[in-house]
C-alpha cells in the first residue's frame, strides 16, 4: 500500500480514483498549511482553520448570480465615475475641477512619471482589470460555458487584488477636502458619488462569493468539459459507437 502511493503513477487503476476523490475532499489552510477535510456547512457559514482561524471557505446562496449582478453594476458605476467631475473648488470667483484621472496627470506634471504610472494602475487600471477578470469568470460559469484561459485570468485577478486601491483613493479625497475646507468652496461632482458607490459595490461583491468556492466551480466546469470531450472522442470511433450512424442520419 505504502509502496504504491509513493509513486504517483504506480497506484493501481482501482486505487487512483479513490486517491483523487480523497484529495478533492481536502483543503489546506493557506496561512498555516494545516490539512482539513471539507464538510458541508450551513448557508452563510464560514469554515475556519482549527489552528489559526483563517477562513477556508464559505457557503452563500445563489453566489454566482449575485456576484455577477454586483459585478455588472460595478463596471457601469466605474464608467459613470470616470465621465463627470470628481471635485470642484472655487476661490473668490475662480473655480477648478478635477476628474479621477486628473490626479495621475498632476503627478506626471512635475516629472514624477513613475509614481503617476503606478497611481494610474492602483486607482484605474488594476481595479478595472480585476472587475473585468471577475466577469470573464462569472459569465461563462453562469451560462455553463467555458472561455479560453479562465484559470489564468482568475489567477491574475486574485493576484491584482492587493494592488487595487480605490477605497484608499476615496479616503485620500476626503482628507484633501478637509485640508481645503477652510480656504475654498468645495463642490462634490457626480463622479464622487459614483465612486463612493463603486467602493460599496466592491465590498459587497467580495461578500457574495469566496475564492475557494469560485475555484471549485471552475474546477467542476473543467471536469465536465473534459468528460464531454471524452464522450465525443468515444462517439467519433466508428467501431464501438452504437449511436454513431443514427447521429449522421439526423
Amino acid at each position: 500500500m505504502r509502496q504504491q502511493s509513493v509513486d504517483r503513477d504506480g497506484a493501481s487503476p482501482q486505487h487512483r480514483p479513490v486517491v483523487e476523490s480523497v484529495l478533492a475532499s481536502l483543503v489546506a489552510c493557506h496561512e498555516c498549511d494545516l490539512l482539513h477535510r471539507k464538510v458541508e456547512i450551513e448557508l452563510g457559514a464560514v469554515a475556519r482553520c482549527v489552528r489559526c482561524s483563517a477562513s477556508l471557505y464559505t457557503k452563500k446562496k445563489n453566489s454566482i448570480d449575485r456576484a455577477l449582478a454586483v459585478g455588472v453594476a460595478a463596471v457601469i458605476t466605474f464608467v459613470i465615475a470616470n465621465c463627470f467631475p470628481f471635485i470642484t473648488i472655487s476661490v473668490s470667483g475662480n473655480s477648478q475641477s478635477m476628474s479621477i484621472v486628473s490626479a495621475v496627470f498632476a503627478l506626471s506634471r512635475e516629472g514624477l512619471w513613475l509614481l503617476a504610472l503606478l497611481s494610474f494602475g492602483f486607482i484605474l487600471l488594476f481595479p478595472l482589470l480585476r472587475m473585468a477578470g471577475l466577469l470573464y469568470i462569472l459569465l461563462p460559469l453562469r451560462l455553463h460555458k467555458r472561455l479560453p484561459g479562465m484559470e489564468a485570468v482568475f489567477r491574475y485577478t486574485v493576484f491584482l487584488s492587493p494592488w487595487s486601491m480605490m477605497e484608499i483613493y476615496l479616503f485620500g479625497a476626503i482628507v484633501a477636502m478637509v485640508k481645503l475646507a477652510s480656504m475654498a468652496n468645495i463642490e462634490l461632482g457626480y463622479s464622487f458619488w459614483a465612486f463612493a458607490l463603486l467602493n460599496v459595490l466592491t465590498v459587497v461583491s467580495l461578500q457574495m462569493i469566496d475564492n475557494h468556492s469560485l475555484w471549485e466551480f471552475i474546477s467542476d466546469a473543467k471536469k465536465q468539459e473534459q468528460q464531454r470531450e471524452r464522450e465525443q472522442e468515444a462517439r467519433a470511433q466508428p467501431t464501438h459507437a452504437p449511436g454513431y450512424s443514427h447521429g449522421v442520419v439526423s
Partner: peptide, 10 residues
C-alpha cells in the same frame, strides 16, 4: 500619496 495627487490636481 493620493492626497498629494488630488491636491495638486485641484
Amino acid at each position: 500619496v493620493f492626497v498629494v495627487a488630488i491636491l495638486a490636481a485641484l
